[in-house]
Design a protein around this nucleic acid. Structure first.
Length: 491
RNA sequence: CGGGGUGUAGCGUAGCUCGGUAUCGCGCCUGCUUUGGGAGCAGGAGGUCGUAGGUUCAAAUCCUGCCACCCCGACCA
């Protein structure tokens, strides 16, 4: 079809790009690297926010809001942190515009220069720890369990809708604790929350693991992550949770008096997921006909399309449909009845497939005659006619089945695309020919990881949690290795 | 930021080599017929040719700068 999108097998990048636009998720904006998230795309993000926010609250966190601007001096207080972010910061230098004297239009008023320049937050650790300093005196003030939903800016060289944009939306949790044990437990707890969200709601299987020093968050002691595999064989980091140790407490002088009356530094964590999850969702499940959305995150779970030849038939379809709509709404299912008369059913079918609506119900004169409906599922494209009696329950079951099926499908894909390499030759062959996850022995050094990255573009995505320790030799250096780690080319 | 490509109506495009005021399809508007997998016919509206300069009697077309987007690198969630 001319209205369709490119095939994944022919041009994966173009497929993704076109899908995002044609499915009305987002478009490029007048500002380089920044996107406009359109209502349909945003409603998916809202679903994600709703679920995650509930999970954060259930684990004891509260939302707060910290400023968009960070004094330049804050960023430089933690040495690794500033080094990690300095290259991609937007900086505010002036606070006023004026009309140019030579009719060149509006210009920056040179007299309105800021005393101290402000950084547009690339992440908020610094401004938050500067605030926490005032919040903490006693062990009784701890823990602080705060999350914020915000936008951040990272001046990227190359952007891709949802996957990497200059400005993006995310949540960042920032917690402060009295003990290392507690902070480490928090870090892992939030990793579990992310993994659960990815698997149970997004229907994307993820590897939980820890990052190597190279891939660690700037300023963290340890970075944990969930890694997902996309359909083109590339890995996508879908969420991160950082154990910050006492690094930010040291940098911002955040101390407390413990039960014994001794003064100690606070332990910290931070954790986040972003609109990048939208990219993961799209790339994990969708096909050449368009989006495939997991029912639990689909803004419209069921669409009902009437088929009619005249106004009389339309009227009876309206009546027939409103009964079904009411039943579905009672079960908490989001449903849209599309009885626009200027579009043919076939067009609507294709359009809702493009938008990834999990279940489509078609009702026509024959159905009304026979007291049936035709239901079609987006994930497998199967259609069948079922009785009107009990239709809502049948659809509810089908939604559950689709949610499970797309997860299993993604899991099967990942299993089939996870391979083991015993030698470097074998490793290079896999990375070049099939991509996917590659398990291989590694000597634990940054030098080896960097060499492998230079030669193959593959990086260590993570060292899986609960990895089985087994002696071996590093595929690159031949040195002793204690475990296999996960390599892949990454987004 | 380096290399390559693209920019013409809401979307996709032809025209550019060889300068003469813009082609086609989809969509949009009106009417009639249609509607179980992307409807048909008839009529109609819509364009500072990305942008700013330059060359010329005349620029979508030739020249220069700038901007945006895409692909490939370096950086990153």
């Amino acid at each position: 079809m001319s209205l369709g999108i490119p095939k994944r097998s022919e041009d994966y990048a173009a497929w993704y790009q076109e899908l995002v636009k044609k499915a009305d998720l987002a478009e490029n904006s007048a500002v380089r690297g920044c996107m406009v998230i359109k209502p349909y795309g945003y409603s998916i993000w809202e679903k994600m926010v709703e679920v995650l926010d509930k999970m954060f609250k259930e684990t004891g966190h509260s939302n707060a809001y910290f400023p968009l601007f960070i004094p330049k001096s804050f960023l430089s207080k933690e040495a690794d942190h500033v080094e990690g972010f300095a290259k991609e910061c937007a900086v505010v230098t002036h606070y006023r515009l004026k009309n140019g004297e030579n009719g060149e239009g509006i210009i920056v008023d040179p007299e309105a220069k800021l005393e101290e320049e402000l950084i547009v937050r690339p992440t908020s650790e610094t401004v938050i720890w500067n605030t926490y300093k005032n919040w903490v005196q006693s062990y009784r003030d701890l823990p602080i369990l705060v999350n914020q939903w915000a936008n951040v800016v990272r001046w990227e060289m190359r952007t891709r809708l949802f996957l990497r944009t200059t400005e993006f939306l995310w949540q960042e949790g920032h917690t402060a604790h009295a003990t290392q044990v507690e902070a480490e437990a928090e870090t892992k707890q939030m990793l579990e929350v992310y993994a659960k969200f990815a698997e149970d709601f997004m229907a994307i299987p993820v590897l939980k693991g820890v990052k190597t020093a190279n891939e660690r968050f700037a300023g963290a002691v340890e970075t944990y992550c969930i890694e997902a595999l996309m359909q083109d064989g590339k890995a996508l980091q879908a969420g991160t949770s950082h154990f910050l140790g006492q690094n930010f407490a040291k940098a911002f002088d955040v101390k407390f008096t413990n039960k014994e009356g001794k003064i100690e530094l606070v332990w910290g964590t931070s954790w986040g997921v972003s609109t990048r999850l939208m990219g993961a969702l799209i790339m994990a499940h969708s096909d050449d006909e368009g989006l495939v959305l997991p029912p639990l995150l689909a803004p419209i779970q069921v669409v009902i399309v009437p088929i009619f030849n005249n106004e009389e038939q339309l009227n009876s379809a309206n009546t027939y449909a409103s009964n079904i709509v009411n039943q579905l709404k009672k079960l908490g299912i989001s449903v849209k009845y599309d009885n626009r008369d200027n579009l043919k059913p076939g067009f609507k079918f294709a359009d809702y497939e493009l938008k990834g609506v999990p279940v489509r119900v078609a009702i026509g004169p024959r159905d009304i005659q026979n007291q049936t409906v035709e239901i079609a599922r987006r994930d497998t494209k199967e259609k069948k006619v079922i009785p009107l009696e009990g239709v809502a329950e049948a659809i509810q079951n089908l939604l559950n089945e689709i949610q499970e099926n797309i997860f299993q499908k993604a899991l099967k894909f990942r299993t089939e695309n996870t391979r083991e390499a015993k030698t470097y030759t074998e490793f290079k062959k896999i990375i070049e020919e099939t991509e996917g996850f590659v398990l291989a022995h590694w000597d634990g050094t940054s030098e080896t990881e960097k060499k492998i990255k230079e030669e193959t573009k593959a990086t260590i995505r993570c060292i899986p949690l609960n990895n089985t320790l087994e002696e071996g030799v590093c595929i690159y250096s031949g040195k002793k290795s204690i475990q296999k780690v996960v390599f892949a080319k990454a987004y």
